[in-house]
Design a protein around this nucleic acid. Structure first.
Ligand SMILES: [Mn+2]
Ligand SMILES: [Mn+2]
Ligand SMILES: [Zn+2]
Ligand SMILES: [Zn+2]
Lengths: 138, 138
DNA sequence: TCAACAGTTTAGAACTATTATAATGTAGAA
DNA sequence: TTCTACATTATAATAGTTCTAAACTGTTGA
C-alpha cells in the first residue's frame, strides 16, 4: 500500500473520481497496519499534519460520507455529541472508555456469539453489535 | 401511581425540589405501565398535549438531565443526530429499526448472556449492551 | 486533442440539537 | 413571613453537521 495507484483504482472502480483530496484521505485512513476510530475533527487534524494543501471541511464531510456509503468506513454509535467512524468495517464489538473517551476494538474471537432468541416480524437483522462501557477501576 | 404525592416524595428524597414542571414530567414519563424511549422533541410534544401550562425547552433539558443523573432515565446511544432516552433503566438490549427510526427493548431473557473474554487493564466494566439493527425484510 | 459535461471542491451561510446566561420566580427552612 | 438556595425561563451562544452556489477538474467521446 505504498502506492497511490491502488487507491486510484479503488476509487475509480467504486464510481468515485480519484481527486487529490480523496487520495490524500485514503492515504491517511487506509495506509496503516492497524485500523482505527476517528471523529471528523480528528481527521481534519491528521490531514493538516500530513499535507500543506488544505482540504476544506465540507470535502472532509463529503468524503467520509461517500466512503461510508461505499462500505469503506463504518459509523459507530456511542454518544450524541459527535459521529465516530471506524476504518475497521468488519463485524466487531467495542469497549468504550468513558474516562478517556476512547473506542477500542474487541477481537471477535473474544466475544461469544450473541444469541438473540426473538425476532421482529417483517424485519431482518442487519447487525448485532456489543458496546462495553468501561471506566477506571476505582 | 395515580397520585402525585408519590412523585413529590421521590423527587424530594433525591434532593430535587418537587416543582410543578418536574411533577408533570414525572407523570408523563413514569405514569405508565410500559416503559418507552423518547427524544427531547418527543417529550416536548407529549408535554404540550398533556397540559396547557408551557414548560420551557430549557427546563425539559434540565429535567431530563437531572433525572438521568439520578438514575431515573438512561441515555441510549444510537446515532449522533439526537439523544434518545429510556424510561427503562434496567440492564437490557435493543432492536433499532432503521426504517421506522424506532428503538425496541429486547427482553433480557431473550438474549444469552454476553461473554467478553478479554479485559482492559485498570478498567472495570460499567455496562454491556447489545444493539441489534434491523430493517424491512427484503 | 480538446470541448463539454458531470462530478467535485470550496467558502461561507444555514441549520439544529444542545448548553450557557442571567434575570425572575418559587420551595422550603427558620 | 422572610430569606435563600434552587429552579424556571427567554434568549443568546455554541458546535457539529449540512446546504448552497460558484469555481474547478476528471473523464468522455467527437
Ligand atoms: Mn451525550
Ligand atoms: Mn448519524
Ligand atoms: Zn472498531
Ligand atoms: Zn430500552
Amino acid at each position: 500500500m505504498l502506492n497511490n495507484s491502488h487507491y486510484i483504482d479503488k476509487l475509480r472502480s467504486s464510481g468515485l473520481r480519484p481527486t487529490k483530496q480523496r487520495i490524500k484521505i485514503c492515504e491517511i485512513l487506509f495506509n496503516t497496519e492497524k485500523t482505527f476510530h476517528f471523529t471528523i475533527n480528528d481527521l481534519v487534524k491528521k490531514i493538516s499534519k500530513a499535507t500543506n494543501d488544505k482540504i476544506s471541511l465540507a470535502t472532509v464531510y463529503n468524503t467520509v460520507h461517500a466512503f461510508k456509503k461505499k462500505g469503506y468506513l463504518k459509523e459507530i454509535p456511542i454518544n450524541s455529541d459527535q459521529s465516530y467512524f471506524d476504518t475497521n468495517t468488519s463485524h466487531h464489538h467495542h469497549f468504550y472508555d468513558e474516562n478517556q473517551n476512547d473506542l477500542i476494538d474487541i477481537d471477535d474471537a473474544d466475544v461469544e456469539p450473541v444469541k438473540i432468541n426473538t425476532r421482529i416480524p417483517g424485519k431482518k437483522i442487519k447487525s448485532v453489535e456489543v458496546l462495553v462501557k468501561v471506566e477506571d477501576a476505582e
